[in-house]
Amino acid sequence: MRGNTGTSRLSRLVLFCVSASVLAGCAGLRLADETAGLPTAVNLETVPFHPQTEFHCGPAALATVLEHGGLEMTPNDLAERVYTPGLRGSLQAEMVATARAKGRIAYRLPGEPRSILAEVAAGRPVLVLENLGLESIPYWHYAVVVGYDSGGNIMLLRSGEEREQRVSAGRWLRRWDRAGRWAMLIIEPGQWPVDPDPDRWIAAVADFDAVADAPEAARVWQQTLERWPDAPLAWLGLGNTEFALGNLEEAVRAYRRLLALDPDHASGRFNLAVALDRSGRPCDALPLFEALASHESLGERASKRREHSAQACSNLGR
């Protein structure tokens, strides 16, 4: 048994080397294959750089993308919004929430390198989360992808204290992969990702809408409807912002467009009924509330409103 120790050590070493190379092989990334139809090399040199101070890679990376989008920001301004002392770091949720609070839409890119490369090629830096440690002992780190070179197979990043970090594509992919392939595009209202997915976009706009001024939110819903006029939730979004602005007629019109696309849309029916009720048409609202009275989620609220509309309708003498 003892005599075998040397051999077993050797075999373990061989096994380790083999598995390491297999793992590396799995996570290989050849930029030349990923950049078909894109420029072979991009370097967004005008993207600003904020070197991070201790544990503050989150605020630094966020300031980098926000400032590129035209907002004067320093990492210090952002630290109080994203940095959590007890975690000695910044949570992804708070990074994107802060971008929204600053008037930007946070669009989560699909977890494919190509989607990042395409945005960079279109002139937009991309915020990414990396894991510089191991799966079991993670070291989370935010960085900003600002370019690539498919000839040298390298990625260019603003990272930590390095203005232009050059990392081999394979090594970078492993870091990104270990962090769940998280990539965020922080985009100004009126702009579009290169290849937007309707569901991802609408979810991003709904979250933006929740903290944005109503007129700004209405403009982004209009923008969305120009591209996808058949998206029910975008009509709901537009109707809700019009409602918030007190434009009840516009709200009613938007909700009706939504119901023309999806007649059973419960939130659309409920909100249409409320808008009708509020604009002096309780008798029109009544059947909508009645139809929702047995709805699983909205039933209770619809029943309450139904009584109110019924009273108001009978007061009108109809």
Partner: peptide, 10 residues
């Protein structure tokens, strides 16, 4: 949840 901290801690 991941909390990006950075190079110095590493």
């Amino acid at each position: 949840m991941p909390a990006g901290a950075g190079v110095i801690e590493v």
